[in-house]
Design a protein around this nucleic acid. Structure first.
Length: 202
DNA sequence: CTATGATCATCC
DNA sequence: GGATGATCATAG
């Protein structure tokens, strides 16, 4: 499926509640009182016909699908959270300039979707919008590159453990994983970047 | 166990 | 109230 085809298909999802779709696609939302935090993303993937897979790389060959929670603030939508982009493998990042990084792979061409977030319970979650995004080669590209190279320099000198979530204007590195003392980290897009990806301004 | 999908919970 | 660090379900 091409990116345009996906966007066209997702347009038919706008305004619909994702929650009942979770049941039709048999996506777990709650289990033993715990939430499956990625349920909305899983539902949209199934909707597009993508089976679940944990491969590090673009989901559809040359573009990446993301779903982010949105909140309505003063009549306009805003990202509720930062967005996880991809895992950091310290050795790989240390040896890889931005031009060849997984981070650029994921950001250069993506389909980003917004869904409403009413409460932690997620009784319902309307699909708000889908947008295509290309990083291009302008100021935004350079700022993301700056952030990446800052993190990369830090990893090279102090190791992955020296990285904290404070680094980076648009992209940061934070812990991610199964939890319970995990030390793995991932790149996250800060909310300001998410807003630009989704074109929430204007 | 670690990757995917992400959001939760706590601290400042 | 936002940022930082921790965590959940599932698949391979």
């Amino acid at each position: 499926m091409t990116r345009d085809e996906a966007i066209a298909k997702l347009a038919g999802l706008v305004g619909q509640d994702l929650r009942p779709l979770a049941d039709t696609y048999r996506v777990t939302v709650w289990k033993n009182g715990k939430k499956n935090k990625g349920w909305a993303g899983d539902v949209v993937e199934r909707f597009l016909g993508l089976p679940a897979n944990p491969v590090q790389g673009p989901d559809f060959g040359d573009w990446e699908l993301k779903v982010v929670p949105l909140r309505k603030v003063g009549g306009r939508w805003q990202p509720k959270e930062t967005m996880a982009v991809t895992m950091i493998a310290a050795d790989n990042v240390a040896a890889t300039p931005f031009e060849h990084s997984h981070l650029l792979d994921k950001l250069r061409s993506l389909v980003i979707c917004g869904r409403e977030s009413v409460s932690e319970k997620d009784d319902h979650a309307r699909f708000v919008k889908a947008a295509a995004f290309d990083l291009g080669d302008g100021a935004l590209y350079r700022q993301v590159q700056d952030d990446y190279e800052s993190l990369r320099a830090l990893i090279r000198h102090g190791g992955l453990a020296s990285v904290t979530g404070r680094i980076g204007l648009l992209v940061q590195a934070r812990t991610k994983g199964p939890g319970h003392g995990s030390t793995t980290r991932a790149f996250y897009a800060r909310t300001s970047l998410v807003a630009r990806l989704l074109r929430l301004e204007s």
